[in-house]
């Protein structure tokens, strides 16, 4: 947890400019049925550009596609 305030009991989400959402802290990633999504890391990058081939995770595709965050 490297954010300025990311205590262990809270999830902190960092919105990266023209990039993914970085999730840190205490969080659980589930699908719409509440089922677990495998592959989450202690710190996870969630796709925001819609072009990742590893969704819901970021795979760096935002750079190749020139994604600009709204």
């Amino acid at each position: 947890m490297t954010g300025p305030e990311a205590p262990g009991e809270t999830a902190v989400i960092m919105i990266c400019p023209d990039g993914p959402l970085i999730v840190r802290g205490a969080y659980t990633l589930v699908d719409s049925n509440g089922g677990p999504i495998p592959g989450a890391r202690r710190t996870t990058a969630l796709c925001r550009c819609g072009r990742s081939r590893e969704k819901p995770f970021c795979d760096g595709s935002h750079k190749m596609t020139g994604f600009r965050a709204p």
Binding site: T2, G19, P20, R41, A45, F57
Partner: peptide, 16 residues
């Protein structure tokens, strides 16, 4: 590395 470096790229720039 595809997955972990997608995280590291952001951590490296914004947090480091």
């Amino acid at each position: 590395h595809v997955g972990v470096d997608a995280v590291h790229e952001q951590v490296a720039v914004h947090d480091m």
